[in-house]
């Protein structure tokens, strides 16, 4: 029971991060109709910025804030400069540009910060003894903090989508850009904002995730996250923010349980499992669990 609970806690923490990143992917997808391959690398870039600042003895909270702003800027600039001019041409061209950004950002990280791994200080008490005991299982403050922050973030996003005028504009732009523009919505600015917010979410996710494990900040850190997050986004339905969050949590818990209890899968094969899961889901339900069916008007 104790082991089970600890695995569950770890799974929820990872799942919360996957959920946040999946939410970011969904936001971009709803706006632009593409998967942002560079989402993970943008998050890694901002995480490096945050880490660089913590080494200068700046409080972690402040670093998080700066990283978030940097993320927003990075996302917005990417949309305006790279994506908007190219997306009219074709989906393939957009994907290739984002792939280029993925490659360039990762390499740039290596040039700027070197290829050694670093440990990132946590926002929350992170000592060996900073846990509360739940039925004998250790629930670390760091885990609790991640849950809380991601819950707040997701809650804020849903408020934004469903309760504000801006959110209404975003939903309108996502559902039909032309009609939205005709109704007077500045769709360009909305898309810019969508990409910015999405990259900012990624920045928060990066700063939250990295301290969970020692020596986690490295050039290869975000890539598995991107895989799990895109699996979650697909699983939940690419256009469904709620679906992405639920699927992210499910995948996190499933990953933790599978690697813990099924020895054949352990460690190495997890991403392969995620792959098979994606294919299966797509074959049975192409629109994902909560997504809406794609309808094309001729």
């Amino acid at each position: 029971m104790q082991v089970f609970l600890e695995r569950l806690f770890d799974g929820i923490s990872n799942g919360a991060i996957y959920a946040a990143l999946a939410l970011a992917l969904v936001m971009v997808f709803r706006g632009t109709g593409t998967i942002n391959f560079a989402q993970g690398e943008m998050a890694l870039f901002t995480t490096y910025i945050a880490w660089g600042l913590t080494t200068k003895n700046i409080p972690v909270v402040l670093c998080l804030l700066i990283a978030t702003i940097a993320g927003f800027t990075l996302g917005a600039v990417t949309e305006r400069v790279l994506v908007r001019p190219i997306e009219k041409r074709s989906l393939l061209a957009t994907l290739i540009v984002l792939l280029g950004l993925f490659l360039a950002l990762n390499s740039l990280d290596g040039i700027l910060w070197g290829n050694q791994n670093h440990s990132m200080p946590s926002l929350f008490p992170n000592g060996v003894n900073s846990f509360i005991s739940v039925d004998g299982a250790r629930l670390y403050w760091a885990n609790l903090g991640v849950w809380l922050l991601v819950a707040l973030l997701v809650g804020a996003m849903f408020q934004l989508f469903n309760r504000t005028r801006l959110g209404l504009h975003m939903r309108a732009t996502a559902s039909n850009r032309e009609s939205a523009a005709l109704a007077g919505i500045p769709t360009g600015r909305i898309l810019l904002l969508g990409w910015g917010i999405s990259a900012a979410i990624g920045a928060v996710a990066g700063v939250l995730f990295t301290p969970l494990n020692p020596d986690a900040l490295g050039l290869g850190e975000m890539f598995p996250l991107l895989i799990y997050a895109s699996a979650a986004a697909l699983f939940g339905g690419l256009d469904s923010p709620g679906g992405a969050v639920i699927a992210g949590l499910l995948i996190g818990v499933a990953e933790s349980m599978l690697s813990g209890y099924v020895s054949a899968i352990g460690g190495q094969l997890q991403e392969a499992i995620a792959f098979v899961a994606i294919v299966m889901v797509l074959l049975i339900r192409p629109q994902g669990l909560f997504g809406s069916k794609e309808v094309e008007r001729v």
Binding site: V97, G100, F102, L103, A104, L105, N106, S107, G110, I111
Partner: peptide, 12 residues
């Protein structure tokens, strides 16, 4: 390791 940066920029 600027190769990635180089190819990434070339792609874009």
């Amino acid at each position: 390791e600027t190769e990635g940066l180089f190819f990434g920029v070339i792609l874009i």
